[in-house]
Amino acid sequence: MVVQHLDGNMLAGPLSEVFAVEPTTALRRCPHCRLVSSLAQLHVYGPRPGITARCPGCSAIALRLARHPDALWLQLGGVEGAFRFPLAE
C-alpha cells in the first residue's frame, strides 16, 4: 500500500493551537543529553542575524528563528526533541 502524504495546508489547524498559547512554559527533552527544560530555560543567542536557542545542559540546538522583511523562518529540530505545550483544562 502506498502511503499518500498530505498537503501542508493541513498543518494550519494543528499549529494554530500550538502558537496560540504562551510558549515559554513548553517543555522539551533534549535528544542529545536527555535534559528536560522549558523554553524559558533555553540559552538563546542573537537576535541578529537570527535567534539560536540551545539546550541549557549540552548546548545542542533546540530551535532557530530568523526574521526577514517578508518572512519568518523557524526551524524546530527533527524527529526527536518535540516541544510539549501544556494546555489549559
Binding site: P49, G50, L65, A66, H68, A71, W73
Partner: peptide
Amino acid sequence: VGYHMYGDPWHEQRNRS
C-alpha cells in the same frame, strides 16, 4: 533559515528574496 545563498553586499543579497 532564509539568509541568501551567496551574500554579495554590493547587491544587498541579505535574504533569499
